[in-house]
Design a protein around this nucleic acid. Sequence first.
RNA 1: UUGACAGGCUAUUCCAUCGCUGUGAUAACCAGUUAUUGCUGAGGAAAGUCGGGACAGCACAGGGCACCUUACUUCCUAACAGGAAGGGUUCAUGUUUGAAUACAGAUAGUGCCACAGAGAAAGUAGCCUAUGUUGAUUUAUACAUCAGCAGGUGAAUGUGAAAACGUGAGGUAAGAGCUCACGCUGUGUAAUGGCGACAUUACAGAGGGGUAAACCUUAGGGGCUGCAAGAUCAAAUAAACCGGCAAUUUUUGUUAUGCAAAAUAAGGGUUGCCCGCCUGAUGCCGGAGGGUAGAUUGCUAAAGUUGCAUGGUGACAUGUAACGCAGAUAAAUGAUGGAAAUACUUAUUGUAUUACAGAAUCCCGCUUAUUGGCCUGUCAAUUCU
RNA 2: GGUCCCGUAGUUCAAUGGAUAGAAUGUGAGAUUCCGGUUCUCAUGAUAUGGGUUCGAAUCCCGUCGGGAUCA
Length: 128
Amino acid sequence: MIRQTFRKSERLCSKSKIENLFKRGTSFISYPFRITQLSDDKNDGPPVQVLIVVSKRRVKSAVARNRIKRMVREAYRKNKHIIWDNYSTISSQKLLLCINYIGKTIVEYKDVERKLILILQRLIENDE
RNA sequence: UUGACAGGCUAUUCCAUCGCUGUGAUAACCAGUUAUUGCUGAGGAAAGUCGGGACAGCACAGGGCACCUUACUUCCUAACAGGAAGGGUUCAUGUUUGAAUACAGAUAGUGCCACAGAGAAAGUAGCCUAUGUUGAUUUAUACAUCAGCAGGUGAAUGUGAAAACGUGAGGUAAGAGCUCACGCUGUGUAAUGGCGACAUUACAGAGGGGUAAACCUUAGGGGCUGCAAGAUCAAAUAAACCGGCAAUUUUUGUUAUGCAAAAUAAGGGUUGCCCGCCUGAUGCCGGAGGGUAGAUUGCUAAAGUUGCAUGGUGACAUGUAACGCAGAUAAAUGAUGGAAAUACUUAUUGUAUUACAGAAUCCCGCUUAUUGGCCUGUCAAUUCU
RNA sequence: GGUCCCGUAGUUCAAUGGAUAGAAUGUGAGAUUCCGGUUCUCAUGAUAUGGGUUCGAAUCCCGUCGGGAUCA
């Protein structure tokens, strides 16, 4: 069982990696999220790195923006074992992931969690 | 008691589980990571970036111009276009209070004042003909009458946002502060009160519009840029620099596979080779330099917060006691469950805890957004004594 | 985070502080046509917002709101 942590190293912070991700990654939409993914060479660190985006253009209020980001982060933290189990077995690959929120209003936490679980399962199916 | 207005205060609390930021302790090892555990973690505006500072870099002998900025007084403050207490002016009320106030200078100069009007700053196509003069009529001339010029004047009418202090009387050819009476507004001098702005009184003398949020003048202030400032460490890559090593083919001399001299496009790309074409004086290693990705620092103990006392009308100051109060960086402060309290309701219970809003170097102000509750003051209405 | 700039009809632009805020285009109606287009006529519609200065403000000054640019 993987612990439900979400550390700094599990986040995607490197500028060049992000550029790479948006340049060459593939993406799909599952409302209210838009997922961009890319497989990368694994050196060290966690098997999956995640970037959460809430656009300032779509959500004007900073408070609402912060709240959505926190909800998404919380939902990912609780359910990341779904995708970790898959990727930790493949030793040479790691996954870069961007979760882009494209809704314009705040939704309930339960909806966010349910939707995110669906997305993570779909990622695994695509991989296989 | 209710309502309105103004001002101030506050921003639900606790527990459990899973996580995040910072930090202290302990342990492990791969020596900067992991694990355990303790403490800590968003506002009154964190917002706008409007004003001012701290701090940092650059510049700087001193002064001036230019540019920007301020503009009633005294005080407060590190400083301010901020605040406090006053003064003047304007407006409202209607006789005493409230509100607003970029509130130096229009007699230093320049510009502008549409339309209308004679005229928008020393002015008429108006008025007058006393005085001088020309002409005409009449007459012996003069007087007189008419017209023009010189001249005088600044009235009335009307226009306009604004018309040359206002009203009345005198005066005159016509008029005019030209004179007088009563007022209005500036200026100067003196006295009294006030720290001062200023107020009151007396005397003298004046009355050439408005506009400086038009240019400007006067007086005071300002060096410029901003934490993406600045400091330290530093992969990678390109070109240039320095040092070392290596390197193509041909010819000649010499006994020589070696050495010396001279000449030479060697290599790479284009399908493995050849031709052709393109590119092209090289390749490797090291150094120094520069400082990108990135990391560390700047970074949070401070013009500190709260209580009390003293001084002051007040802003505030002084003294004393306690507290030790975020520090992220594609950016932490969250999720779930339960309890208490409050409000509303269908009163077993259920719903809500909301508004505006999220630190980004720090601080002081200002401005703007805003829900519910509490407190204070003023005014109005009603009821009771 | 800092520093600057700009807001005029539905759209693109004008307008010296002077009054009905103008032009093109769009939209609507009418005329022309057998019908549509072209053309002609008429209408429609705006100074981002709240104050101030001024006799008078789109313009000058201040606050607010919105948009944009730039600095690694």
